[in-house]
Simulated scan of single mutants.
Amino acid sequence: MQTDSKTIYTPFVRAKDSVWEVMSDVLLALIPCAVISYFAYGEAPLFVMFVAVISAMVGEFIFAGIFLKKWNTLLDGSAIVTAILLAFTLAPFTPWYVVAFGSAMAVIFGKILWGGLGRNMFNPALVGREFMTVFFPLVMTSRTIWYNKDYVNFQDLNIFNFLGNGGFTEYMNSIFFKPSGAIGEYSVLLLVLGGLYLLLRRRISWHIPFGLLVTFFILLQIFAFKDIKFSLGGILLGTLFMATDMPSSASTKMGKLYYGAMIGLVAMLCLLNDVKYEYMSYSILLVNGFVIPINWVFKPKVWGENINLKERVGAGVLLTIGIVATTYALVYLHHFDLVRYLIFAYILIVIGRFSFSKQLH
Rank of each mutant, 00 (worst) to 15 (best):
G59T: 09
L163G: 10
F67R: 01
I228F: 13
P11N: 08
S55K: 00
T7H: 15
L113S: 00
I31H: 05
I218Y: 04
A40T: 11
E21I: 14
V48M: 05
Y328F: 15
V53K: 01
G181W: 08
D25P: 04
R143C: 05
V192K: 01
K256T: 04
L237F: 06
Y282I: 03
W146M: 09
L333V: 03
V98Q: 05
L285P: 08
K69W: 07
L285R: 06
L333C: 02
A64Q: 00
F135V: 14
A52V: 02
Y279P: 05
N153R: 12
V35Y: 10
L190C: 10
P124S: 10
W71L: 03
I80K: 03
Q155L: 14
P179W: 07
D76P: 02
A182Y: 05
F217D: 12
N123E: 04
V339L: 14
F210S: 08
G260T: 05
Y147F: 15
K299F: 07
N72H: 12
T327M: 11
Y9S: 12
V58H: 02
L27R: 04
L30Y: 02
L213P: 03
F216R: 01
N148P: 07
L342E: 01
N306I: 09
D4A: 10
F61Y: 09
N158F: 08
A79Q: 09
G211T: 07
I222E: 13
Y147T: 11
K301M: 15
Y259N: 10
F356C: 07
F50A: 10
D156P: 02
R14F: 06
L28G: 05
T327P: 09
T10H: 12
T252V: 11
D76E: 10
Y9G: 04
Y259A: 05
G102D: 13
S231W: 12
G77V: 14
I62D: 01
D150Y: 11
Q2Y: 13
G42C: 13
T169S: 11
Y197P: 09
P11V: 06
M242N: 02
F63S: 03
V266R: 00
A243V: 10
A52H: 00
G264Y: 04
F88I: 07
Q359I: 14
V26N: 02
L318S: 09
T89N: 12
W206T: 14
G316V: 10
L113I: 01
Y151P: 04
I235H: 03
F217G: 12
G110K: 03
H207D: 13
L265E: 01
V339I: 13
S18M: 13
A34I: 15
D156I: 11
I222D: 13
F12L: 12
F131P: 01
F88M: 14
I84V: 15
A329W: 13
S187M: 08
G316A: 15
F225I: 15
G110L: 06
D17C: 06
Y341P: 02
D76Y: 01
V275C: 04
G59W: 01
W296V: 07
A182G: 08
E130Q: 14
V350K: 03
F162I: 15
L68G: 00
F63R: 02
S357R: 06
S37T: 11
D25G: 15
I36R: 05
F67Y: 13
G314R: 09
I8K: 00
I208Y: 01
K149D: 11
W114A: 07
K310W: 12
I284A: 05
E21W: 11
F356M: 14
L46E: 07
T252W: 10
L75W: 02
I204Y: 07
Q359M: 14
L271Q: 05
R143M: 12
P95K: 14
